[in-house]
Design a protein around this nucleic acid. Structure first.
Lengths: 226, 226, 226, 226
DNA sequence: GATGAATGAGCCTTCATTCAT
DNA sequence: GATGAATGAAGGCTCATTCAT
């Protein structure tokens, strides 16, 4: 309530370091978010302190609060950033894919294993938030908003392919399994006990698609029609 | 489950009444573990304190440390308990199943959705540990040990069925997808945005099995041979 | 939000001091309130920290929060204590006085200069709260509640004496001036530039009463009727 | 009062517009002092920060320190300003009064309730310093210097009137009561529980003077001799 | 066994001050 | 002159742990 100490404060601290200043406001925020991600990945949610983040970013303790006001807001901003990045990644992949539903689905599935996104750090960072989502409504919102768009797209493409191929599957359940498998592969890649490569992960995913949609997918990827 | 200990809670400092206060050592530990699970489910890992647990169990602050020495050990013991419970659950299901591989696989898959195990509290509790696993070797061990046996059993049964049916699938990848789907269904059931019933979850899982093993499974369950 | 540090805490602190424990809860609170008063008197409101209070009381930092939850509540409790003490002081004086209005008024006026209450520490402590009252509704309440009873009693006795003596004064304004003079004397006694004794203060007050009520008071005190 | 500086505030980093930004040194200081008084009145001493003052003045954070070097000096300068203003107010009132002691005393008493000085903001601002005076020698000096001249003048005029009227009163004590009453009226006007007008306040004061000096004062004011 | 007062390390946060621009 | 990013000291508070009773 009353930060009394500020009033006396005659202690002069010998400043030596001629630190470079004046990074742009946004660049600084970005730098701090990046540092936060690294620390979260390394130490987990419950063990991450503002001092860790400041040290990781190479700035003073107080600067973090100067730019984010509170730890809570820093963590929320970081989650927001990751969610945006994730969404933009699969959206961009979709936009770059051909017109066929199978190609678009393949692009979406492969996007999750894009080397830029699918790094150990990102995986660990997502994971660190995971346990807190349930007890933090704000985080849950972020997750939900993200998921909803992704799920709907997955269901839509699945429905299209099912119709095309006359596969007689339930699109919602099929999309679910595809999503779970993608998620599960991420988790496996993170955990030490089942270390396999991104290539193997993607192959597992396409092999599943090939079981669902044998005339549209092989374990190697989509079977684009001539 | 452990109702006895709970009942003494409301009596405050009854110094005259010679209240029975000596619950057996194990019962007390069990009571504290149960309280820990409830608190973890409600508040998440980072927000759970020993005071919360003590209050939830209706005992004094110091008693928790008396029985578990440290917070860390309490949390580890709780994880151990849940892991044991989980393992015993699917092991028991397997033992109660018939001799056919498909029946045994079905029993294993269904075990995850046993109402005793698949409660919102258990789901949330598992989830709360999840984010910490990466940065805590001890937790990781627990998880791994648990998973390894489960995965191996799943792969073995899958291989058996694949051989029986001549499905030409990769048993490891198939088992993976089954496992991911089971995990994913749990997560979905926990998160608010896609609330479906255990029955629907199990149906999704069997529908997947039916796609993999069409001559052994239907979306309703295993096709036991006459 | 997340006190992360508690989780690791393997640092063992060599405990040496065999501090006497288990003072009763109320005694401890009282001890801390007394320490707070001393610190407030010495350092003023804005400069008082919980560490100061803890050091003054000879206990650890955390104990203050253990008993009062927050600094705010400690300060409020301290104000409450002083207000109660003040009220009880003049109430007791009234109860010990004779039946005549003049005697009762004299007792009330003298009560403010009771050596137990009118100490430099008490004066300085009241003063330290004074500047904060305006911006803290809670404090204002305490002050108001206290003042209202005091003012009403003063007005009532004044009215009685005015009626008795046929002085033709306004009771409300007369009571006001008596109250302001008492307050002003306190302040003067506190400030260094006009240090006079309690006796001189009280004499000033009775001299004023003698001007208002010449047939009831002399500068030495009330003129009790034979 | 100093509206010019306020007007440039909303313009953010207008790098092209050659805005007039150089207010004179003194005007800037005055502007900051005025802002400080407003903030002190609103938030109290312990809660006033340099950021608050800067925001209130519509200037940047750093400018405050540029002009005052430290928070301490700003607060001291503000107190100095208020003390000067107060002294000049009653001095001017004295100078404007007639030659009779009673008129001069009346002018002095009325000066405290001059609408320019006796504003809620000024009252609250004085009050906010009050609690800190005891623990800050510098503030005490300011207060003392101010009071001494005021008190001496009050005592001198009282003595003169007492001699004129043969009232047989002690001039020092009489002056004290007049001063306390003036102070008390200010405090009452500030506190919410006894909200009366300046007119009523002044009437209370004159009524007191009429009791002390019945041949020189009526409750309406001084009885100037023909 | 059980209680709860007591300790103290470490956290988040505030904020006076400095200084590059 | 003026800005506002940056620093770091200090404060309030939390809470795991200890221990007298």
């Amino acid at each position: 309530m009353i930060p009394a100490g500020q009033m006396q404060a005659p202690i002069k601290s010998a400043k030596v370091i001629p630190l470079q200043r004046k990074i742009s406001r946004d660049a600084r925020r970005q730098q701090l978010i990046a540092a936060t991600m690294r620390v979260l990945a390394r130490k987990g949610f419950a063990q991450t302190t503002l001092s860790d983040v400041a040290a990781e970013a190479g700035v003073s303790h107080g600067l973090v609060n100067f730019h984010f006001e509170s730890k809570e807001k820093l963590l929320t901003a970081t989650l927001l950033f990751m969610a945006d990045e994730y969404r933009e990644n699969w959206t961009a992949a979709l936009n770059g894919a051909g017109p066929h539903a199978a190609d678009r689905l393949a692009a979406m599935l492969a996007a999750d294993f894009n080397p830029d996104i699918c790094t150990p750090e990102r995986l660990a960072c997502w994971c660190s938030y995971w346990g807190e989502v349930q007890s933090r409504p704000l985080y849950q919102q972020e997750y939900s908003a993200n998921d909803t768009a992704y799920i709907e797209m997955l269901e839509g493409l699945s429905a299209e392919i099912i119709a095309e191929g006359g596969y007689g599957l339930d699109a919602v359940r099929t999309a679910r399994v595809l999503r779970f498998t993608s998620e599960g592969l991420w988790n496996d890649m993170l955990s030490m006990n089942a270390p396999y490569t991104r290539e193997e992960a993607l192959k597992t995913l396409f092999a599943l698609a090939a079981v669902f949609f044998p005339r549209h997918f092989s374990p190697e990827g989509p079977l684009t029609k001539a």
